[in-house]
């Protein structure tokens, strides 16, 4: 990919993100309340999208069970269990990633 395309993609992402952050000021001018339906959607969308992203991260699990599938699932399990026990983001990321990096070399 050319550097121009990379920068273009980053800038498009930046503009969309900024517009979303500024939307209450642009459209609603801060005076009118957000439409109810939009507000409800905004409350439930993040967890649904996060689930999609996890599926996205694990998308190669079914097609390559042995080489990446099992290591990924085991590492996810390690993250879930360690976070349940310790509630420490940094620790769980290091643990899961470290385990995954070891498992794929086996």
């Amino acid at each position: 990919m050319s550097p121009y395309r990379i920068i273009l993609i980053i800038l498009i992402s930046a503009i969309i993100t900024f517009i979303l952050r500024a939307l209450p000021f642009i459209v609603f001018n801060g005076k009118i309340k957000m439409p109810d339906a939009l507000e409800r959607l905004g409350k439930v969308l993040p967890s649904a999208i996060m689930a999609v992203l996890i599926v996205y991260c694990l998308k190669d699990v079914p097609s390559d069970i042995l080489n990446t599938g099992i290591p990924k699932l085991l590492a996810v399990l390690a993250v879930v269990i360690s976070y349940r026990l310790k509630k420490n983001t940094f620790l769980s990321i290091i643990l899961g990633t470290g385990l995954y990096m070891i498992l794929i070399t086996l």
Partner: peptide, 15 residues
Amino acid sequence: EGIDFCMTALFVIIL
């Protein structure tokens, strides 16, 4: 190799 898993771990924790 495999450092990309940190993204998966982050998303699992956020969820």
